[in-house]
């Protein structure tokens, strides 16, 4: 009798918000992450969505991340597309995950935003229950598990591919993690990009990134990489001086994750646009 009570208590003790939600309120889970056993029959995503006709839903595009002296930085453009239509010019795709980490999302915007929200609560929940922060590797693994859970949706064309960056307090350095749709987690060195404009941004970063960039230079490099991605990828939005829209940029260092203020980004983007105009280059 006592044995079973103890087992029950141990089995229901979890520091994971996701596990709690799956057990108690599965209906609140993001679309792809509802456990199959708990889904009403006839509502499996496989059956609902024939693979031949992918849904027309907004997709987020390019995210860049790079390390600099003392931390790591992540930036994302402000565009979401739905086929050939611009679904949003204002969408934000880079978010603080907790005090010392940020994540950027590319892919199906709706599911990605849900996963982001769940991930943010997951980290805060762990911190409150355990009284201590999850390690950076622990955070990266949790995110991987969530992306893996979305695999069924990814196979329907509703993939979510995040980029995760954080400051590893014990090691004293900024680290970067990329993911594939199966939840595979890969630690990246120096810099990385995801999304439709990623190959153009990556090309730019290869030329612009240097070891030990200052924070200010790192912001300029990230914004310029996004500018190059927007130049060649129609699904990536460039800086928009007409609407005063600039990329979302977060820097993460020992002091925590901080969003770079709009006016700094306006100045940085202005400098880039000006230098390109002065150069009078066509391509």
């Amino acid at each position: 009798m006592q044995e079973t009570t103890a087992n029950q208590v141990a089995a229901s003790a979890t520091s994971s918000f996701t596990e709690h939600l799956q057990r108690e309120r599965p209906g609140l889970m993001p679309l792809g992450l509802v456990p199959f056993g708990l889904m009403p029959s006839g509502q499996l995503p496989f059956q609902q969505l024939p693979a031949a006709a992918p849904l027309q839903v907004p997709h987020g595009t390019t995210i860049v991340a790079l390390t600099y002296a003392g931390g790591v930085l992540m930036a994302g453009d402000r565009r979401a597309t739905m086929g050939n239509v611009i679904a949003s010019r204002h969408i934000e795709k880079v978010f603080p995950a907790d005090q010392y980490s940020v994540l950027g999302i590319a892919g199906t915007a709706g599911i990605a935003l849900d996963i982001t929200r769940l991930f943010q609560v997951e980290l805060e929940h762990y911190e409150k229950i355990e009284g201590t922060l999850l390690s950076l590797d622990g955070k990266a693994n949790r995110l991987g598990a969530m992306i893996r859970g979305n695999l069924a949706m990814a196979m329907q064309g509703l993939a979510v591919v995040p980029l995760f960056a954080g400051f590893d307090l014990p090691a004293g350095l900024g680290r970067l993690f990329s993911y594939d749709v199966t939840g595979g987690r890969y630690e990246e060195q120096e810099h990385h990009t995801v999304g439709s404009g990623s190959m153009f941004a990556r090309g730019a970063l290869k030329k612009l990134w240097r070891p030990n960039l200052s924070e200010q230079d790192a912001v300029a490099v990230a914004v310029e990489a996004l500018y190059d991605a927007a130049d060649d990828d129609s699904a990536t939005g460039g800086p928009d001086p007409v609407r005063q829209l600039w990329p979302v940029v977060y820097v993460v260092n020992r002091a925590g994750a901080v969003r770079v203020p709009e006016r700094d980004l306006a100045a940085v983007a202005g400098t880039i646009i000006e230098s390109r105009a002065v150069a009078q280059r066509e391509a």
Partner: peptide, 11 residues
């Protein structure tokens, strides 16, 4: 209490 609050805030 933490679970209650987090579920409520999330939903």
């Amino acid at each position: 209490g933490v679970r209650y609050a987090d579920v409520r805030g999330y939903s």
